[in-house]
Amino acid sequence: MAYRIIESCVNCWGCEPLCPSNAIQAARPHFVIDGGACTECDGDYADPQCASICPVEGAILDGLGVPVNPPGSLTGIPPEHLVQTMAEIRAR
């Protein structure tokens, strides 16, 4: 199984130096993961490194095509609480 970077990647270089398999390359329009080289960090780290530093929700998919960082997971706002949280913040 291998991870994949999709078009919402912002080319921030965060992931590239972290990959234990050197599977990530800078490319245009966005960085790419060499599917043959990616090990999902199995045996190297508890957490997949690229997905642990990526600042963009949804930019990295796992082997099943599911976003490793789904909407809301990085901002810390559960999507179902979005409206309530927005109201709280606006009242500041």
Partner: peptide, 14 residues
């Protein structure tokens, strides 16, 4: 220096 190691709520890298 493009990479960052934290997320701030006032920043959007896009």
């Amino acid at each position: 220096a493009p990479a960052c190691n934290i997320q701030c709520h006032y920043c959007n890298r896009k």
